[in-house]
């Protein structure tokens, strides 16, 4: 470790050792507290509440929307969002927090200067400016598989509350949940249908005593925060849409629908359905996931 410390760090990256005043106090609670921490951007503000939002990488559109929604409302109420910058739920949580203009932090498994996964480079760049990227691993360390569970303990210890949005029965997010329980952090899980694979892990957590995340507002209340702002996304009135688009829009939900489903539900011709769904998509009301699968965008 020493050889890295003495070396000159790349620009914009700081190393904060545990003896320094700035070092996050929460980390000291850990029995295996790292000697120091590498930061790109800011460190989480210790005076503010922090919520970790974690979940499956291969999540559903519903999960993504839920993570983004929770992060958005929490961030709008001055709560910091912390996660792992992974694909799926993690990314959606960061995105939601950024949308609300809140501070959001990512704990990386490897080098802080390397964006992993590559696909989140835009998020990474934004977070570097408004929030922060943290890691206990030195620069030049690749994101090795064994480092991920180790990284998860940092995500949970740095937060006050851990929220699991979507997780299969065997999911890395459950490791974070276990750490949270060990470290005495509050644990919440988003409930789901019994038959959904991606909700099995969350439902299991709930049955073991995790809090049920029914809304971000309720979470804020439980955390003892006042709800200043509710969901600040522009509420959208369906009245502005033409009749045909309205019909198609009303058939859409967070469950992906195919053109086929829409045709059947609306009894419109295929050409009208494609036209309407594309218009909705261009207006940003509908998102396409996979080929010709549409969901409402939230």
């Amino acid at each position: 470790m020493k050889k890295y410390i003495n070396k000159e760090l790349p620009e914009g990256i700081r190393y904060i050792s545990r003896s320094e005043k700035e070092f996050p106090e929460k980390l000291l609670e850990l029995s295996d507290c790292p000697d120091g921490i590498y930061v790109r951007g800011k460190l989480p503000d210790p005076k503010k509440k922090t919520v970790a939002i974690v979940g499956a990488r291969m999540c559903s559109a519903y999960g993504r929307a839920t993570a983004s929604y929770f992060a958005r409302v929490l961030a709008a109420n001055d709560v910091q969002i912390i996660s792992g910058l992974a694909l799926g739920i993690d990314g959606a949580a960061h995105e939601g927090a950024l949308m609300a203009g809140g501070a959001t932090f990512a704990v990386m498994a490897g080098d802080v200067s390397v964006c992993y996964p590559r696909g989140h480079i835009e998020l990474y760049e934004q977070m570097r400016k408004t929030g922060g990227i943290l890691s206990e691993e030195p620069c030049g360390c690749p994101p090795l598989p064994r480092l991920f569970p180790k990284r998860n303990r940092l995500i949970s210890i740095l937060s006050d509350v851990v929220l699991v949005v979507e997780a299969k029965e065997k999911s890395g997010s459950l490791i974070t949940a276990d750490f949270a329980a060990e470290q005495g952090r509050d644990l919440f899980a988003v409930p789901g249908r019994l038959e959904d694979e991606l909700s099995k892990g969350c439902n299991e957590l709930i049955s073991q005593g995790a809090g049920i995340a029914i809304s971000p507002e309720r979470m804020l209340e439980i955390m003892g925060e006042k709800v200043k702002k509710s969901d600040n996304s522009e509420s959208f009135s369906e009245n502005v849409l033409a009749r045909q688009e309205n019909m198609v829009y009303s058939c859409l939900s967070l469950q992906p629908k195919t053109l086929e489903d829409l045709c059947k539900a609306t009894k419109l011709s295929i050409t009208s359905v494609t036209e309407s769904v594309m218009l909705l998509q261009l207006q940003g009301l509908v998102k396409e996931i996979g080929r010709n699968r549409y969901v409402r965008s939230v």
Binding site: R57, T274, M278, K287, E288, G290
Partner: peptide
């Protein structure tokens, strides 16, 4: 306009397409 909308709906995939 309607023809263009149709064409966009059946547009070709690109790498980024599968939004995982």
């Amino acid at each position: 306009v309607s023809h263009i909308l149709q064409a966009i709906c059946y547009r070709n995939i690109d790498r980024k397409f599968w939004a995982v």
